[in-house]
Design a binder for these strands. Structure first.
Lengths: 211, 211
DNA sequence: CAACAAGTGTAACACAGGTTACATTATTTT
DNA sequence: AAAATAATGTAACCTGTGTTACACTTGTTG
């Protein structure tokens, strides 16, 4: 584990901290689709991503849902920290988008390290900042963009972080994440196809040239 | 200043920290409408609110804007911290909604205190958490609610934190904050009035019974 | 292989809310 | 007081997108 830890966090954490993480952290392999966190659950561990991607969704009581952002390698769940400290429940749902490797850190350590390691503090603050920025981008999208623009952005983003120009999603799945209906997504995708920007197949969408 | 500081922050900060804040902080009286921060500006100080309210707006390049949330007494601008540390530019615009008293803390101190005072760390983390939660609420509103529901929520929120059931805004101002047009707001307000929930006057709206 | 489920394509319609245009009323400026 | 400006009221219209309904295709299961 120490090896992978060093690869992804060696540049930002000091040696002593790396050793501590190696000691108290638990390495986990998470399969695609696994639910890591449900709304309303208490948070007891903090994840440090090694590889893969975790989808963060917002849900309301009426079954409405919306994709907020993805966590990738080098990221952590910023909300986890304060949820732990403040003993509050999770506001979001976290699902492995693809197979994912991560290290689980127990709550108490996080608190301890914040006083002890400057690099840890900076990491936590940076994480907060990154997540804030992504929330702002999400707000920009839903407030200022039309559905067709949001869809294009969604396809681009997904192709980027999966490093695959074929997106393995059904129209229904995309509709859930953008909080719209399947018919609307099918309609807009068809328009994109007729513009020569994508190719539609069953269960997957090939991106030709979106930008 | 120490007195007011103690009133609002005495319960959460340790004595030594209160003393330090008193020494290095600058007390400021901000008049209603004053712009504290513009998008793209560098952030050099961190505000601690004593009283009043600060409106945080998101803008895009095309002149679109949207109200994100309000800061009140006991709050601070969470984004400020990491903007300072990371030397990045502000992503948001901050305007005094009403006359506001606050204490400005220079950047270097914040960093120092984070290592030195546990109470300061907790305060900063709590602030991040609160702001995150408010951003999520904003997302809920724009993603899951209709404009009439958002308007009602807006009126309620505003009446709450100004502790005044008369809202001193024009329809145009409300339209900007909810990112819609004046005509739409006028239309919906008129409907609320005909339902006996509000009373419309020039430059102000009296809330009768919204919930 | 028949039956079924899942995924997609498409038409027809409904409606919230954005746009344009103009009238009316209140307030400020000259 | 006249003129200009700001705020509001309202009608008529347009568009994006959500909804319903149904056909068709592909893969799966008994």
């Amino acid at each position: 584990m120490l090896e992978e830890l060093r690869t992804h966090y060696g540049a930002i954490f000091e040696e002593a901290l790396l050793q501590e993480i190696n000691q108290v952290g638990t390495f986990k392999d998470i399969p695609e689709g696994f639910k890591l966190m449900e709304i309303g659950e208490y948070v007891r561990v903090m994840p440090l991503l090694i590889s893969g991607a975790i989808k963060i969704m917002r849900d309301d009581d009426d079954g409405d849902e919306l994709l907020l952002y993805f966590l990738e390698k080098g990221d952590t769940c910023a909300m986890t920290m304060t949820c732990c400290i403040g003993q509050t429940r999770s506001e979001i749902r976290a699902i492995a988008e693809i197979d994912t490797k991560l290290i689980m850190i127990p709550v108490q350590k996080m608190e301890e390290w914040t006083g002890k390691y400057r690099s840890w503090r900076n990491f936590v603050f940076q994480s907060y900042h990154d997540r804030m920025t992504e929330m702002l981008e999400t707000i920009d999208s839903i407030a200022f963009l039309n559905m067709d623009q949001r869809l294009v952005k969604y396809l681009q983003d997904k192709a980027n972080f999966t490093e695959d120009n074929v997106i393995h999603s059904t129209h229904q799945e995309i509709a859930y994440e953008l909080h719209t209906s399947r018919v609307v997504i099918s309609r807009l995708l068809k328009k994109l196809e007729s513009l020569g920007k994508i190719e539609l197949h069953r269960n997957n969408i090939k991106i030709l040239e979106l930008s």
